[in-house]
Each structure stands twice: as structure tokens, then as C-alpha cells.
């Protein structure tokens, strides 16, 4: 198992699996695309037919997790397997934060990506899972650059801004993506002397901070998540710098999921063409109702989970 980026294979006879390049490269293939939450095989097929680049298999979409309350856990393996059987696009699934046994189960099921997700109830309030220990790549949420870099240091191969899942309200997704992008832009201007202090302030490894300063971007793919409900929302996140979007409750909690799913895919590809986004936005039926995030009590904010 590699915990470094040195990934040169020795010979044609010894193929190397689970390398950082293979894990991060997988996310590169998803860029420009939409990853959709689905709760069964039928929804997974609708998502695939609409042009989703991947599906997230889970038992309840975040809007229902909010409504139902209680502890939210990894989904039933049978349900995840049914979804893997139903589609040919990659299948992701969620583990609780710090619940590395759920992650081990998901890896054994053959899911293509594991989302160590704040949408589920955290299993560990101090530690996230050691993601280098897995062949399956991980995506993790972040509200700011320091959080993103801590997850990457733990082995995350893809980052998504957290937003506030299950609200149908894009305001937190915008806040978190802007925060990450602004902090990256600031690092761009720092000289070497300043990078050490910046690393301390960000509570992130110096090497990663330096890398971001040089690249002007994260060393892994950055998607947006949490609150995208319309084609315009998706295009907004892309124009703000997200390389793709996760859509959770927004699709299957709406009036016409197939149509809305296809419309969000279109708007994500042609995010800078208002005419196409306008056309995609016509006659979609009812959007999910949505929740105003400023009336959401702190204890019900998923974005506060993880650190």
C-alpha cells in the first residue's frame, strides 16, 4: 500500500493497484460531471440514463435523514450491490466519519469510491479514517482549505465542498467553495517564509501547503456538494470553480427526477452558456422545497461534523 506519490511501476509484470495516481486519476475522469444520490437500482438507472458520471448509493437521501432523525449509518450491503449490478458507471457509497470498518466493508463490496461523509452520524469525534490504508479511493467534505488539506494528508483522493446537505439551499455550498478558493488564492501570493506560518495557521502539513501555493489549486479534484437543487445552482458552483457537482436530495425529491437530472447534467457541462442553462431550466416541475439555513439550529448543521 503506497502512502507516497512515488508510483513508478517496476515492470510490466508487477502492476501496482491503489496508488495515489490511480486513486486521484479516477476523480480526474469524473470532472465536468454530476454525481447523483440514489437509494435503489431504479433511481440509479434513471441517473445513468440522464448522463450522471457516477452515483452515490445510500439508504436515505439527506433530506430524509434530516426528517427522520436518529443515527444515520452505512447502507445495507445488499442494496449497494443491487445498485452496482444495475449500472455501468462508478458507484460510490458513504461511511461514517472515523468508521473504518464501514469503509472496509464498502471496499470489500467493490464500490469505486468511499465518501467519508458528515451526512452520516460521525463514529469518532477526534479521528477520521486512515485513508492510505485502503485500495479504494476516498472523497471527503471540507468547509475550508485547512480541512481539505487535513483530509488529503489522511489520504483523501478527492475533495468536495460540504455545503449543507438535504436543505436544497445552495448558500452554504457557495460559502465553502468561496472560502477554499480564496484561501488558495491567498497562498499563491505567499513567499517561502510565509508558508510555514500559513501551514501552522491552516493546521495542515507544510508540504501540502507549499504544493497548493505552487499549483494554485488543490492537488486533487475539487467538487461541490450540499444544496444544489437546480441547473442554475450547478452552473453557479462550476463558475465559482468547482470541477463538478454532487446532487443529493435535489433530484429525487423533486417533481420530475429524470428531467431534472438531465437538465442539471446539461447545465454542468455548459455552465458558462446562459442560453443553454435557461433552456435546461424550463418546465422541470416542482423543485424540492428546501430549508432556510439561517433557521437551522447549529446542532442540525452537518457541515459542523468533521474537523
Amino acid at each position: 500500500m503506497s502512502s507516497t506519490l512515488s508510483t513508478t511501476p517496476q515492470s510490466a509484470d508487477s502492476p501496482a493497484t491503489g496508488t495515489a495516481r490511480v486513486k486521484r486519476g479516477m476523480a480526474e475522469q469524473l470532472k465536468g460531471g454530476v454525481i447523483m444520490d440514489v437509494v435503489n437500482a431504479e433511481q440509479a438507472k434513471i441517473a445513468e440514463d440522464a448522463g450522471a458520471v457516477a452515483v452515490m448509493a445510500l439508504e436515505r437521501v439527506p433530506a430524509d435523514i434530516r426528517k427522520d432523525g436518529g443515527v444515520a449509518r452505512m447502507s445495507d450491503p445488499t442494496m449497494i450491490e443491487e445498485i452496482i449490478e444495475a449500472v455501468s458507471i462508478p458507484v460510490m457509497a458513504k461511511s461514517r466519519i472515523g468508521h473504518f470498518v464501514e469503509a472496509q466493508i464498502l471496499q470489500s463490496l467493490g464500490v469505486d469510491y468511499i465518501d467519508e461523509s458528515e451526512v452520516l452520524t460521525p463514529a469518532d469525534e477526534v479521528n477520521h479514517s486512515d485513508k492510505w490504508a485502503f485500495t479504494t479511493p476516498f472523497v471527503c467534505g471540507a468547509t475550508n482549505l485547512g480541512e481539505a488539506l487535513r483530509r488529503i494528508a489522511e489520504g483523501a483522493a478527492m475533495i468536495r465542498s460540504k455545503g449543507e446537505a438535504g436543505t436544497g439551499n445552495v448558500v452554504e455550498a457557495v460559502r465553502h467553495l468561496r472560502q477554499i478558493k480564496n484561501e488558495i488564492a491567498k497562498l499563491r501570493g505567499y513567499d517561502n517564509n510565509e508558508l510555514y506560518a500559513a501551514a501552522k495557521e491552516l493546521r495542515a502539513p507544510y508540504e501540502l501547503v507549499k504544493e497548493v501555493s505552487e499549483l494554485g489549486k488543490l492537488p486533487v479534484v475539487l467538487f461541490s456538494a450540499g444544496g444544489v437543487a437546480t441547473p442554475a445552482d450547478a452552473a453557479l458552483m462550476r463558475q465559482l470553480g468547482a470541477e463538478g457537482v454532487f446532487v443529493g436530495s435535489g433530484i429525487f425529491k423533486s417533481g420530475d427526477p429524470a428531467k431534472r437530472a438531465a437538465a442539471i447534467v446539461k447545465a454542468t457541462t455548459f455552465y458558462d452558456d446562459p442560453k443553454i442553462i435557461a433552456d435546461a431550466s424550463r418546465n422541470l416541475g416542482e423543485a424540492m422545497v428546501g430549508i432556510n439555513c439561517d433557521t437551522l439550529p447549529e446542532s442540525e448543521r452537518y457541515a459542523n461534523r468533521g474537523w
Binding site: 508487477s14 490511480v22 464500490v111
Partner: peptide, 25 residues
Amino acid sequence: QNESFEAAVEVSGVDGGPVEGVFIR
């Protein structure tokens, strides 16, 4: 994805030794 891998690949017409093949699904 769990079976995705890297391996050296000899490509006919490409000089200078094998290329690094990154195979993803």
C-alpha cells in the same frame, strides 16, 4: 476501481523505453 493499476507498457512506434500506463476502470 479496486483493480485499477499502473504498469509499464511497451508501445510500438514510441522510442525510449516503455510508457507509464495508468489504467483506470
